[in-house]
């Protein structure tokens, strides 16, 4: 039977249950992980990216480097409707 859960400030998610499945990662995948290591440091360049966005009634792709020349705040959050 589904059990009620209390909604909190993290987006509710699930996951595998029972025995932990053995995951054999192909070599290319682990190499890719290496590449994606966080490279964030103050005084260093902000990694550029493009992402789809909702802006005042429209959908558009936004690229961080379009904001060069301006002070920019980039904010991440756990999910829409997460209360705080």
């Amino acid at each position: 039977m589904p059990e009620d859960f209390k909604p909190g400030c993290a987006r509710p998610t699930g996951g595998p249950v029972g025995d932990t499945p053995v995951i054999i990662e192909p070599e290319s995948a682990s190499a890719r992980k290496e590449e994606q290591k966080p490279m964030i440091q103050v005084g260093k360049k902000a990694p550029d990216f493009t992402a789809p966005a909702y802006i005042q009634g429209k959908f558009a792709n936004v690229t961080l480097s379009e904001y060069l020349g301006k002070w920019t705040l980039l904010c991440f959050y756990p999910g829409d409707f997460t209360f705080v």
Partner: peptide
């Protein structure tokens, strides 16, 4: 993927934590 690059993605929960970055006009994280 962007959250992972910025080091704020929580892969276990599958969500991004409350990270906030100040980026100057030269694209440098201050």
């Amino acid at each position: 993927r962007v959250g992972t690059t910025y080091g704020i993605y929580d892969a276990d929960a599958g969500v991004e934590t409350r990270g906030r970055f100040i980026i100057d006009p030269d694209g440098i994280i201050q």
